[in-house]
Design a protein around this nucleic acid. Structure first.
Lengths: 179, 179
DNA sequence: ACATTCATGTAATAGGTTACATGATTTC
DNA sequence: GAAATCATGTAACCTATTACATGAATGT
């Protein structure tokens, strides 16, 4: 049981879902491809943490719907109370910052402008999903609360990244004024 | 040449360094163990991007100092102008948020308090390193500028995480008032 | 006609962590 | 006496990405 497995189990604890559903839902918070997810679901089924049934669909491929078992719920609850692993962040942009001394000011500016655009797009992506959550689901009584606060985190951290870029452009501009 | 290799090359472009030095320097921005770093340095040496010499040290083990070659500098500069990969963030805490409905309010509060403490400690860690950079190195003329802005990013994003936790505690508290 | 969405799976490869291996010096 | 720091390296294992494989329905 690795971290991703627990994340999938957590999503299934909310509503039954297919591997495909889970891939889409976990995407904004943990990048994982279907090729990683399907085997994990299979092994959790074997361990009795999940149960599955095939659903026939007209006009769409059949899907395997997973539900959490009582054993799965117990396991999830144990995990919640355990120490949480520190977050891992890997951003190529940070490493590029180690050698901005090699680039000309115009190149540096283009680099930062490009990353700013990326973050602005991300911000819109998160806000659009968040805005789609109805007001009445945004309190702890609903599972929508969980999505709502997670998206808020993404929004706030993304805003910090944009603010940082603006701050750098100011600091950098002071020393390398140019049109 | 993967992303980490470029990051190491970028660090060496600033000052010659040993694998051990590089492991420590890259740590706050890209988690990598020495077992991953040493082979990458070896392969970059083989490719002619780095050159190395052994330094004998009294009272400390000998070390292998790497310097960047002209070919290495060219390669780095090319990399700088290429598309930057999107950042990858994996935080177990986010996945735990998917099932806070399973926990009691006291458990949820403990969870958030624990993560808050973690971020506050990280904040101090980043600020201490940043504060150690002399004022006169904090402008684009010095390589210290690169460290200075990167630490500022870490500080700003960490602050966003703490602010988010405070915001969640407020939102959560409104609905589950308790002493 | 071509791309995308839905839907599942396996195989091969690359990236990253833990463990094994060694060993002197310094700090608690 | 035990732990940490400095310093390098390899082996085994786990995690994650890319590629292979299939196929109907819908949208451009």
């Amino acid at each position: 049981m690795n971290i991703l497995s627990y994340g999938l189990l957590a999503l299934v604890s909310r509503t039954e879902a297919s591997g495909y559903d889970l891939m889409l839902k976990i995407q904004p918070f943990w990048q994982a491809k279907h090729s990683q997810i399907y085997p994990l679901l299979g092994s959790m089924e074997e361990q009795g943490l999940l149960s599955a049934k095939w659903i026939q669909q007209a006009d769409k491929p059949d899907k395997k719907l997973y539900s959490i078992t009582p054993a799965g719920t117990d396991k999830l609850h144990e995990w919640l109370l355990e120490e949480t692993a520190p977050p891992v962040m890997r951003d190529e942009f940070n490493l590029k910052c180690f050698c901005i001394h090699l680039a000309e000011p115009s190149e540096v500016r283009r680099m930062f402008a490009g990353r700013r655009k990326y973050h602005v797009e991300r911000m819109k992506y998160y806000k659009d999903i968040q805005d789609a959550i109805p007001q009445e689901y945004r309190n702890p009584g609903h599972i929508g609360f969980e999505d709502y606060i997670l998206l808020q985190k993404a929004v706030m951290r993304t805003k910090a990244s944009i603010d940082w870029i603006d701050w750098v452009e100011q600091e950098y501009g002071q020393w390398t004024a140019e049109a």
